[in-house]
Nucleic acid binder design. Sequence first.
DNA 1: AACATAAGTTTCCAAAAGGAAACTTTATCC
DNA 2: GGATAAAGTTTCCTTTTGGAAACTTATGTT
Lengths: 208, 208
Amino acid sequence: MSDESPQDIYPSMTIASEQSSEKIEPLKLGKRLKEIRKSFGLTLEEASQKTGLARSTLSKIENEQISPTFQAMQKLANGLQVDIPQLFAPPKQVTATGRRDITRSEEGKAHPTSTYEHELLATQLTNKKMMPFKSRIRARSFDDYGDWIRHDGEEFLLVLQGEINFFSEFYEPVNLSEGDSVYYDANMGHMLASVSEEDALILWVTAS
Amino acid sequence: MSDESPQDIYPSMTIASEQSSEKIEPLKLGKRLKEIRKSFGLTLEEASQKTGLARSTLSKIENEQISPTFQAMQKLANGLQVDIPQLFAPPKQVTATGRRDITRSEEGKAHPTSTYEHELLATQLTNKKMMPFKSRIRARSFDDYGDWIRHDGEEFLLVLQGEINFFSEFYEPVNLSEGDSVYYDANMGHMLASVSEEDALILWVTAS
DNA sequence: AACATAAGTTTCCAAAAGGAAACTTTATCC
DNA sequence: GGATAAAGTTTCCTTTTGGAAACTTATGTT
C-alpha cells in the first residue's frame, strides 16, 4: 500500500543482536524498570506515588545501586500495573524492525461465514504476534453454531457496537454491551451471539 | 485435580463489578519455594550449597520471616534451575487454562498521566500474552511528550472515538479516524495526539 | 543571562535482610 | 525408651535496603 518500508529511510537501523549463550543473566532490572516507567511517561515522583516507594529508592533501583526486596518488587509491579514476570523479562531481541500496517475503516479483508463476518486487519504484516480483526456477528443463538469454538492461544474481545451474549464452556453466559470486553483462554469453548435485532460489531485480537 | 472446572478454581469470578482493586497479591513465595525445594528432594543444607544462600536465610524465606532481595532471588532461581517467573507462578495451573476476565465499560484500572489516561483491562488475569487497555488521549501535539514512546513487543491500536495523529519514528505522521487501526513494532518510537478539540479514545493491545 | 521550578541523585540514618553459630525438633539407629 | 545424627529454626550480629531531606542536574520562563 502507500507505506514505504522503513529500511529505505533508515537503512542502518542497528539492532543489537546479543547472541550470548546460556549465561547467568545479569538481568538489568534497573534499566528495565526505567524503560517501563518511561513508557508510561511517569516521573520518579509519580512512580513513587503509584508504588508507595520513595523517590530515592526508585532512583537507586534504576541505577542498580541497590537490589530491591521482594516486597519492593511487589509494590513496583502492583503500582505500575505490570506482571512481576514482566519485570524479569530479559531484554528481548527485536525481530521485526520498525514495521507498521495501517488499516482504514472498512478496508480490511472480508471473510464472511453464516454466523460471523470477519474483517481481517493489518494483513500486510506477516508473522505477527497478534492477529486483530473486526467481526459482524450474525448469529442470534447458540444453535447457530454446531459446537463450541475452540483454538489455541488467548483472545481479547471488545464490543464496538450492539450487544452480545458471550457463551463459554465453563461459565454462565454473559451479556456484553458496547465498551465491555473479555479476555479469555481460547481453548475454552466459546461462542457469540448478537442479542438485539441488529448485528453486533466487535473487535478481537488473538495471540498464541 | 484434572476434572476441576474453572468454577472451582475461580468460584467468585465477579462479573458484575469487581470493586476492590487494592489487593496486593499475597503470592506465597516462601511456600512456593519450599514446594520447589521439596520436589527436588533437597534439604536446606543442600539447597544452601546450590544457591549460595545460608541455611538460615533459606529457612527464613520459606517461613516468610524475611523478604528476599532481588539478588537472593537470582541465586535461588539460578541454583535451583528454575526461572524467576516460575518462582511467582501459582503452584498448580501454570498456564492460563480455562480462564477469562470481563471488564465492563469504564471499569478498568485508571492510570492517568498528563498525555494519556490509561484504563487497563482484564487486570484480574495475570501472565497474559496480551495486555489490552483503553486510553483517552489528552496530548494535542508531539511536544506534549518528552520523547518517543518505545518498548518491547508489538502493538495494535484501534481508534474508538475521535481522530488522532499517529507519529512514528520511521514514517510520516498519519491521520487515523474512528474505526481505523494500526499494527506496529513498539520498539519503533511512536506517539499519539488527538487532532480535534475533544480527547480521542483508543483501544490498544500489546504483546511481547 | 539570571531565576524559578521540576526531575533526578546522594547523604544519612532507621529498619530489614543475610550469615555463623547456638538451639530445637524430627528422624533413625541400638 | 534413650542416644545419635540430621533437618530445620532462632539468636545475634554485620551488611544492605528503604525513606526523608539535602543536594545536584535539567528544563523552562521572563
